[in-house]
Design a protein around this nucleic acid. Structure first.
Length: 286
DNA sequence: CGATACACCTGTGTGC
DNA sequence: TGCACACAGGTGTATC
């Protein structure tokens, strides 16, 4: 589920309750997430102070004072619940859907008495530890493409990354080695905004349309992050969950509905690419 | 490399 | 109501 905007929203929600805090207690109730927890996971975290929270692609990074960084991936269904934060503290949320306690896999408790629980029914999420000094070389992060909202992501990068590639634009934008953080929903949205067909052979896309894709990527992600940010404000409360927020899409999930591109009379179609649903308008996306 | 299939795991919605 | 099935926002591996 969570793509870059959701991950960034979760990061921002966790930051006020975790940054600067010491972890008084860490409990690994289930070690078998996407990958097994690293050796000494609980020991390496217990007593450590979290210096701050970062993000790389869809990974949340918690930098610790002992030289480790905790690397968190939410998978498809990962979410955090915060309990015991000060009322109305930013980052504390109303529970939208009660989390099933049997999926509470990892529990952190800060010195301040706040409990942060990681729930993940499908267990596609993961937690790992790496040395902060060599973070970029860690197995999880090595090979990730540039941040889509960073300075290295632009038409020139796409031109280089797409050159000679015969796979579809949809497939390559989903490839985290080309750009880090996009998932199925936002790739659909980006290509719709850029008016580029998801079926287009990537290597055949000209500079002008690569520019449109790069621009649409920034716009769509920033708007979604803003929407997540407003969710953070709207749902500030004493207890809550982090992981999902409501957002409206132009293409994703709108099969058979009218295209909303101004002046376009098309209808959104659903096709399958690489085993995953693609939503697009065959009229305005060429 | 490219394209595809499949694997991991659980929940939810739909149609019969 | 029960049951089978399709499908879900991710990503790593194997195979040809």
């Amino acid at each position: 589920m969570p793509e870059l905007p959701e991950v960034e929203t979760v990061r921002r929600g966790l930051e006020p309750v975790l940054a600067g805090q010491r972890l008084a207690r860490v409990e690994a109730r289930r070690p078998d997430l996407r990958w097994p927890l690293p050796d000494g996971f609980v020991q390496r975290l217990t007593g450590a102070r979290i210096l701050g929270l970062g993000r790389r692609g869809k990974y949340i990074l918690a930098h610790l004072d002992r030289g480790d960084t905790l690397i968190i991936h939410l998978g498809m269904t990962g979410r955090f619940e915060i309990e015991g934060a000060a009322p109305r503290a930013p980052g504390a949320f109303v529970m939208a859907v009660p989390a099933n306690p049997k999926h509470a896999h990892i529990v952190f408790e800060t010195e301040a008495g706040v409990r942060i629980t990681f729930f993940d029914p499908r267990r596609f999420g993961s937690m790992d530890l790496a040395e902060t000094a060599a973070l970029d070389e860690s197995p999880r992060l090595a090979g990730l493409g540039p941040e889509p909202l960073g300075p290295d992501f632009n038409a020139a990068h796409l031109k280089k990354a797409f050159a000679g590639r015969r796979q579809s634009a949809k497939t390559l934008l989903l490839d985290q080695r080309i750009v880090a953080g996009l998932g199925n929903i936002y790739v659909c949205e980006i290509l719709h905004r850029a008016r580029v067909s998801p079926l287009t052979e990537a290597g055949a896309i000209g500079a002008r349309r690569l520019g449109a894709i790069a621009l649409a990527t920034r716009q769509v992600l920033e708007e979604a992050i803003d929407a997540g940010g407003s969710t953070l404000r709207d749902y500030a409360s004493a207890e809550g969950e982090l992981g999902y927020f409501q957002h409206s899409f132009e293409a994703y999930g709108r099969e058979h509905e009218g295209c909303r591109t101004p002046g376009c009379q098309g209808v959104i179609h659903r096709i399958v690419q690489g085993g995953r649903s693609t939503f697009y308008c065959p009229v305005c996306q060429r």
